[in-house]
């Protein structure tokens, strides 16, 4: 049984998500709240297996919630609820610790499928996001300070997976192409997410020390 918590300020959508979750036998609603404060309160002691959160909340940004959750409950998988799945929102969420996103208008079966896929190991990334991730890890000719590849960079296999995703191949197709099991591919994707979060945290530390905060 997977416990799911929803943070969404639009009551109609909140209701819809709650309905979808309740109607699936494998999922259990952990909490359904409409703002940041309630979400924090709900997660003060324990955390759900999956956290679904909107980014624009009335009392703050969902990004903060994602970051806190990722730090306090690393076992919790976080997904962002977004209307368009556009690059800026998704990348920021992934950097904060999210491992995927759900489009607001997803069909119930897609919705449930994504949650299950996420629990199973990895959530799909859109090719454009994958491409941006590749760029993050491999700053081609930017003048920024080059970081040692092994520290924050991807392994050869991980970047191979990422670049295939960027070309639009599905996990199953990638597994076939690389002659590995689909589970391995999802494991790679999850690893990539984690690395990106670590990577961005490292960057944050670097930025902070540069600005004299630490």
């Amino acid at each position: 049984m997977t416990t799911v918590m929803v943070v969404e300020d639009d009551p109609a959508f909140l209701t819809r998500f709650c309905k979808i979750i309740s109607s699936d036998p494998d999922l259990e609603l952990f909490a359904a709240v409409a703002d940041l404060a309630s979400a924090r309160q709900a997660m003060s002691k324990t955390a759900p297996d999956v956290l679904l959160t909107d980014l624009g909340l009335p009392d703050g940004s969902g990004i903060d919630l994602i970051r806190e959750t990722a730090r306090r409950y690393p076992a919790t998988d976080v997904m962002v609820i977004t209307v368009f799945g556009d690059e800026d929102h998704v990348l920021a969420s992934i950097e904060a610790g999210a491992t995927g996103y759900i489009l607001k208008d997803s069909m119930p079966e897609e919705f449930v499928g994504l949650i299950k896929q996420l629990r199973a190991g990895g959530s799909p990334i859109s090719p454009i996001i994958a491409r941006q991730l590749l760029k993050r890890f491999k700053p081609e000719v930017t003048a920024q300070e080059a970081k040692p590849v092994e520290e924050a960079g991807l392994s050869a296999r991980e970047s191979e997976v990422l670049s295939l995703i960027a070309k639009g191949f599905s996990f199953a197709e990638i597994a076939r192409l690389l002659i590995v099991s689909p589970h391995t591919v999802t494991a790679h994707v999850k690893k990539i997410y984690q690395k990106l979060a670590v990577h961005s945290r490292g960057e944050a530390v670097y930025e902070a020390s540069r600005m004299g905060l630490i």
């Binding site: 859109s126 090719p127 454009i128 994958a130 491409r131 995703i165 960027a166 070309k167 639009g168 191949f169």
Partner: peptide, 8 residues
């Protein structure tokens, strides 16, 4: 390719 991928 990412554009086509995204459409897919």
């Amino acid at each position: 390719l990412p554009i086509l991928g995204n459409l897919r």
